[in-house]
Design a protein around this nucleic acid. Structure first.
Lengths: 161, 161
DNA sequence: GCCGCAATGTTGACTCGTTCCAGGAAAGCG
DNA sequence: CGCTTTCCTGGAACGAGTCAACATTGCGGC
């Protein structure tokens, strides 16, 4: 919930022109973390009246490039965006309803985790700069009702209840 | 490189009928770890002459469900499959060429990692059953040539060189 | 060995998220 | 003020994946 001025500053700092669509999309991403492009388009339109869908796609791409938003896309889900960047946090994804929640990274800085503990790794020369972690499981409410069937994994879906 | 008989046994053990497409796909996944569906279709066809693409999609889905293969899908990449299952290993993905390599998991059993160390997690009641880790970086050969540009991240692409 | 049914495979059209295109209008910013 | 970036309208294309209806084929039972 950053104020418009702050967002404007962030855009300028990234070397981007400050335009209404960009502010709207940026705001939307802050307001609704982990939602897909469709929802963002909706949110941006709610704020501006009209924005073309490719303006939004464009903006998202540019913001992602500049590191102002982060694109995430768990298995079977469409692209989702979040505004929390730079703190290298991870995600919890519910296998049955698809909700995504943030989890702070214990270590803090990236890469918070390295693939090999000591020396002589299986892949020397591979320069790891980030460890992306997705925790799969069942969220509280899905865990409550005892699984419709054992094989109900309709893949991550829409919505951030 | 398991022999056909072994694969057949595995299929039966999973309660699946043994059919040519299934054997072919299973074999292909063993032969070519980390490749996408297209390549697998090609490999299966090379072995059988003809297989419809949904037969392959179907088979992959069923095999994934039964845990005979594992589906992986790093950001910006299409679905890929591998036959190493049950050992909860992780992956190294090269940002510039997209190669995927396996890394053994230090812990062994899933979930090898839990999101919160001690008690009082931010998300109690969320039952984590698996921690999926992707290490992003640059592979040896891409690290060698000093980055075509600083923003060259064409997302994970095809091929397992 | 042979039958019959349910599980699989085939075919071809189709969905859906996403990207690309092009020409003209609008609007930032130096 | 003028140049350049960005946006718009509105298509059209794209590729991975899915659906549906019909043909085929494993495999347990006879």
């Amino acid at each position: 919930m950053p104020d418009p001025q702050e967002l404007e500053r962030v855009l300028r700092a990234a070397g981007l022109r400050v335009t209404r669509p960009r502010l709207a999309v940026l705001h939307a991403v802050h307001d609704h973390p982990h939602v897909d492009t469709d929802v963002l388009i909706g949110a941006a339109r709610a704020r501006l009246g009209t924005v073309s869908h490719q303006a939004v796609y464009d903006v998202l791409q540019v913001l992602t490039e500049r590191g102002l938003v982060r694109r995430i896309q768990p298995q079977g889900s469409v692209a989702r965006y979040e505004a929390r960047v730079g703190d290298n946090h991870h995600h919890l994804v519910c296998r049955s309803c698809g909700v995504i929640s943030d989890v702070d990274c214990a270590a803090g800085a990236a890469p918070c985790l390295v693939p090999w503990a000591g020396e002589s790794p299986a892949h020397p020369d591979f320069l790891v700069d980030e460890a992306e972690v997705i925790y799969w499981g069942r969220c509280a409410s899905c865990a409550a009702r005892p699984a419709v069937s054992d094989t109900d994994r309709p893949a991550a879906q829409r919505g951030t209840p």
